[in-house]
Structure formats: structure tokens, C-alpha cells
């Protein structure tokens, strides 16, 4: 018998064949004594194992076994908390520039979208403090419809004082 036939017998035993293939193997194994003997052996091995998994008992007391598990759980949780704290501190230095960049982007988008319809006072120039949610950054905006100009000044509140309002902005973006 070749290996393919042997494995087909096994697939039949394990119910891994289609009904049609299973019928063919059943017919073949009933006719062929060699196939019948091999199928019998495979079936015996399967039946012997089913439900007869060796029963073993842990050779350690409940308390001793659990104490190592609990210690490891606590150690892993402490390590994770430490990692998160370190990650927070290392990322915090990027928060100020990121928050500033996001603010500029939001203001620039809103100006681009709504700038044309605020033409009530075309010649007016506005310098205003911009409200934001960051504790670390402040921002001022300067807008001139007449010059088609919009400037946002973002600063770190811990390091830099806000700019004094001036009639003309030094920095012009067009």
C-alpha cells in the first residue's frame, strides 16, 4: 500500500473526507484485508487514547505555586507602569510644538474657508489672542483682509512672553 492510500485511510477514520470519498474508502477497506487491518490498528490507537489522557498532579502546594504567579503578575504590572511613565515623559517635550502646529493648521484652514465672506470691514486689521486648550502654549493671530494676510504667533508660555500688539506685523505671510 502506498503512503497516499495509508493517509486516505486515516482521513476516513478522522472524518476528514467528503461523503463520496468516504464511501469509496469504506468499500475499498471492506474488500482489501491489508487496508482493513491497518484501519483496525489506527482505530484501536485512537480509541485507546480517547478520554484516557494521563492524569497528573502538580508536585507543588497551592500556595507555593500561586505565590510565584502573583509575584510575576505584580512584577510585570510594575514594569508596564514604569514604561508608560517613561513614554509619557519622553513624548511630553513634543507636545508644545505639536499643539502649536495643529493650531496653525486649524486657523489656516478656517481662514481659507471663511476669509472671503467676512468682508464687513475690509480695511480692518485685527490682532487678537487666540483661545486654545494647551496649558503650555499661547497664540496670537493677526489678520488683514485688505492685505490678504493672516499671521499666527505661537509661543511657549514657560519660556517666552507674548508679543506686544503693534500696528503693523513684522512677519508677513502672503
Amino acid at each position: 500500500m502506498n503512503q497516499k492510500s495509508e493517509l486516505r485511510l486515516q482521513s476516513y477514520l478522522d472524518g476528514e473526507l467528503s461523503p463520496r470519498q468516504a464511501r469509496r474508502v469504506a468499500e475499498w477497506s471492506s474488500r482489501d484485508p491489508e487496508a482493513r487491518a491497518l484501519l483496525g490498528e489506527l482505530k484501536m490507537a485512537r480509541t485507546a487514547l480517547a478520554g484516557n489522557e494521563p492524569e497528573l498532579h502538580l508536585p507543588e502546594s497551592r500556595e507555593f505555586y500561586w505565590s510565584k504567579i502573583r509575584r510575576e503578575i505584580e512584577r510585570a504590572e510594575k514594569a508596564e507602569a514604569g514604561f508608560l511613565r517613561r513614554a509619557w515623559f519622553s513624548w511630553r517635550k513634543y507636545l508644545v510644538p505639536l499643539a502649536g502646529t495643529a493650531l496653525v493648521a486649524i486657523l489656516a484652514i478656517s481662514t481659507a474657508r471663511f476669509g472671503d465672506v467676512t468682508g464687513a470691514d475690509e480695511s480692518a486689521r485685527h490682532l487678537a489672542e487666540v483661545e486654545n486648550l494647551s496649558e503650555h502654549t499661547g497664540a496670537y493671530s493677526f489678520r488683514s483682509h485688505a492685505e490678504n494676510m493672516f499671521v499666527v504667533w505661537v509661543y511657549d508660555q514657560n519660556q517666552e512672553a507674548p508679543p506686544e500688539p503693534e500696528p503693523e506685523a513684522d512677519l508677513i505671510l502672503q
Binding site: Q3, E6, L7, Q10, S11, E41, L42, M44, A45, R46, A48, L49
Partner: peptide, 12 residues
């Protein structure tokens, strides 16, 4: 399939 076949045969 091959491993299972030989494992069963050896077990028997």
C-alpha cells in the same frame, strides 16, 4: 497527516 499516522502506528 503523516506525523499523526506514524504516531498512531508507533503508539499501537
Amino acid at each position: 497527516m503523516s506525523r499523526l499516522f506514524y504516531a498512531r502506528r508507533k503508539m499501537a
